[in-house]
């Protein structure tokens, strides 16, 4: 058990390193020069450009830049913003709470509503409830979050005036954004749970449960759900990633001061060190969450507890 956790931790570290290498390489090799595109509109002389590049260490060969970048990263230094010259990491940390609040509430909404609706739908498979829930799920995964967010604002803020349309302080500003992301997540989870429950009730052991006299309710909610939860939990790990990416869009729509907004601004301003920092940071967070998911398998699925074999990263 402990060995398993240590092993997973090591694997996660590897993956985080890998992903930061990946992001570094993408930003290094892909065409587009941070300095040039920032100064393109200005009238900087070639000498001035070279000077700036040198100041940022961008004229060093690849391996050297790479070494410097990694050396710093392990010391918790993600470099400085090209725009404001602030160090990146503190900037990220400052905005993390707002995003975390958003991601957690919307994940909670998705998980709760998604599992509930998914099982409910599977229980009434073929009926009207099922059809309705399936349509809801389809809408959830088909609506762009920036659109449903705007629609929510139009309805609840502009028309009804119930909730503030923007901002990032207080619980009331959290409602609409997390609902927006929650709709997406609910769609994903309920579709997953529904099909996974339907798969489970085709397993032979379900007949055994009926034959020993359990009610259909007990069969569904006690046994089918427990078995169906395993793939749903995997989904939950991936959902956190979805939510963090979705935060970029949703925070823009609702003008929330979170890391998604930082990223969006950095992209607009071609502030590559910040882009890099945020992406690597989110990847790390994502890996961490998935590590937790893997560990939680052991609580749900005894087969994994026994063998200590996870389901991949």
């Amino acid at each position: 058990m402990l060995k398993f956790i240590v092993f997973r931790l090591a694997a996660s570290l590897f993956v985080i390193c890998g992903s930061s290498v990946l992001v570094f390489c993408i930003l290094y090799w892909l065409p587009g020069d941070a300095v040039l595109s920032r100064l393109a509109l200005g009238t900087a002389s070639p000498e001035r450009i070279a000077e700036i590049r040198h100041g940022l260490g961008l004229d060093a060969p690849f391996y050297q830049q790479f070494g410097v970048y990694f050396g710093r990263m392990f010391r918790g230094d993600f470099g400085e913003s090209l725009v404001s010259a602030e160090p990146v990491l503190p900037k990220i940390m400052e905005h993390v709470p707002a995003t975390l609040a958003l991601a957690l509430t919307s994940t909670a909404i998705s998980a709760g509503l998604g599992v509930l609706l998914g099982v409910w739908s599977a229980f009434h498979r073929g009926g009207a409830v099922d059809a309705a829930v399936r349509i809801v799920g389809l809408f959830g995964v088909s609506m762009p979050a920036f659109w449903s967010g705007i629609m929510l604002i139009l309805l609840f803020s502009v028309r009804l005036g119930w909730l503030p349309p923007m901002g990032s302080d207080g619980v009331r500003t959290l409602i609409l954004p997390s609902l927006t992301l929650g709709i997406v997540g609910t769609g994903l989870i309920l579709r997953m749970v529904r099909s996974s429950v339907l798969d489970t009730i085709r397993e032979p052991f379900i007949v055994t449960l009926r034959a020993k006299g359990l009610s259909e309710r007990a069969v569904m909610y006690r046994h089918a759900l427990r078995n169906a939860l395993i793939p749903a939990v995997t989904m939950l790990g991936m959902l956190v990633g979805e939510m963090m990416a979705g935060a970029v869009v949703v925070e823009t729509v609702f003008a929330r001061q979170g890391i998604g907004r930082v990223l969006a601004d950095a992209i607009a301003g071609k502030d590559l060190p910040v882009v890099q920092g945020v992406v690597v940071f989110s990847a790390g967070l994502y890996v961490l969450v998935n590590l937790l998911v893997d560990l939680s398998y052991m609580l749900i699925d005894p087969r994994i507890r026994r063998t200590g074999i996870g389901r991949g990263t």
Binding site: F205, T208, K212, G213, I300
Partner: peptide
């Protein structure tokens, strides 16, 4: 169905072909 259920598993019971897949793996 509600009145059949008390009989199933108590007055009459069943044993299945593949014991490997006839138990719920999660309990």
């Amino acid at each position: 169905a509600d009145e059949v259920r008390p009989l199933r598993g108590s007055r009459m019971a069943m044993v299945f072909q593949e014991p490997m897949s006839a138990f719920d793996p999660a309990f």
